[in-house]
């Protein structure tokens, strides 16, 4: 009896969270799914809603600007994620090899590494927009002092995407580093000492001991960061607004423009969002599946 009533209490306690995520997450998603089969245009509120089947999907999949934005999304997320994980690993190794026995320095540095991740995305975007500014920016100022010409970081379409990716890497690599440092510390010290006596070089240790022992954690950090990167609207909209032209326009940016900024094609944008959702879920499932299969095979 007591256990039953406690179980019921637990259900009541969890209920608000579930109801909230349903109302705020699942319902809009279902609503978007529904809308994607209609012909809703927010610029034409008087137009009668009509079911038009998969027309929206056909049109948007054939749209070159959507395809380009999809490519941009993938490039931004992959580069940002790989960059943050690799740089994070490098920082974690630095902390492990040089600062492990200096707790004060380690604590101070860890806090500093976390600050970018704790700073709001919009703030980070404004800070870096300023840093990159051709006239007022610190970076161009320093480049000028070193005798280089002005670099148009955000308005040169060849490097705008890389500039935004760099900001993203800057924001998240410290965060990744702390995760990976915790993983490094948990590898038994004897593994390293054994390798030392055997005479393994740093890169051999990295390849045969560190990476294999951190594999699970690396994947977790990778997925976490990838999810963060896919939601990039705030960063890109402040830094470049998708420009110059559509050079940094990701799916988020394009769909926003489609539904709100431009022609008011809410249904078509919904179809695009559903496509993105499916791509995300499928790619995550593949990665996790591969990892688990490998784990079983070990």
């Amino acid at each position: 009896m007591a256990i039953k009533s406690r179980d019921r209490l637990l259900k009541y306690l969890v209920a608000p969270a579930i109801i909230f995520s349903f109302v705020a997450g699942v319902l809009p998603m279902l609503y978007a799914l529904r809308n994607s089969f209609y012909n809703i245009n927010v610029r034409l509120p008087m137009q009668t809603e009509r079911l038009i089947g998969i027309t929206n999907y056909k049109i948007i999949l054939g749209n070159e600007r959507f395809q380009a934005s999809l490519r941009n999304s993938i490039v931004f997320s992959l580069e940002g994620t790989i960059g943050a994980v690799l740089l994070g690993l490098a920082i974690a190794l630095f902390l492990y090899y040089f600062l492990r026995n200096k707790p004060l320095l380690l604590t101070g540095l860890s806090t500093m590494l976390l600050i970018p991740a704790l700073t709001g995305r919009i703030s980070v975007a404004y800070i870096w927009r300023l840093l990159y500014d051709p006239v007022l920016g610190l970076i161009n100022h320093v480049l000028g002092l070193l005798g280089f010409g002005t670099v148009e970081f955000l308005s040169n379409s060849n490097i705008a995407m890389q500039s935004v990716v760099f900001t993203d890497v800057w924001q998240w690599s410290g965060f990744a580093a702390l995760f990976l440092y915790a993983g490094l510390v948990s590898i038994p010290r004897e593994y390293f000492e054994e390798a030392q006596v055997i005479g393994a070089s740093f890169f051999q240790r990295l390849r045969y001991i560190i990476i294999p022992n951190l594999k699970g954690l690396l994947l977790a950090v990778f997925l976490l960061k990838f999810m963060i990167s896919l939601r990039n609207f705030d960063l890109i909209s402040v830094m470049t607004g998708g420009g110059p032209g559509t050079a940094t326009e990701t799916v988020d940016m394009y769909l926003y423009w489609l539904a709100v900024g431009g022609r008011g094609l809410l249904s078509r944008a919904s179809a695009g969002a559903i496509i993105m959702l499916v791509i995300t879920i499928v790619s995550f499932m593949i990665i996790i599946n591969l990892y688990q299969r490998q784990k079983v095979g070990e």
């Binding site: 038994p188 004897e190 593994y191 000492e193 054994e194 006596v197 055997i198 045969y208 001991i209 294999p212 022992n213 594999k215 070990e298």
Partner: peptide, 12 residues
């Protein structure tokens, strides 16, 4: 060559 107290065989 050294043999440690703990098992230091690499699990991977």
């Amino acid at each position: 060559a050294m043999m440690f107290q703990q098992a230091t065989l690499y699990p991977n």
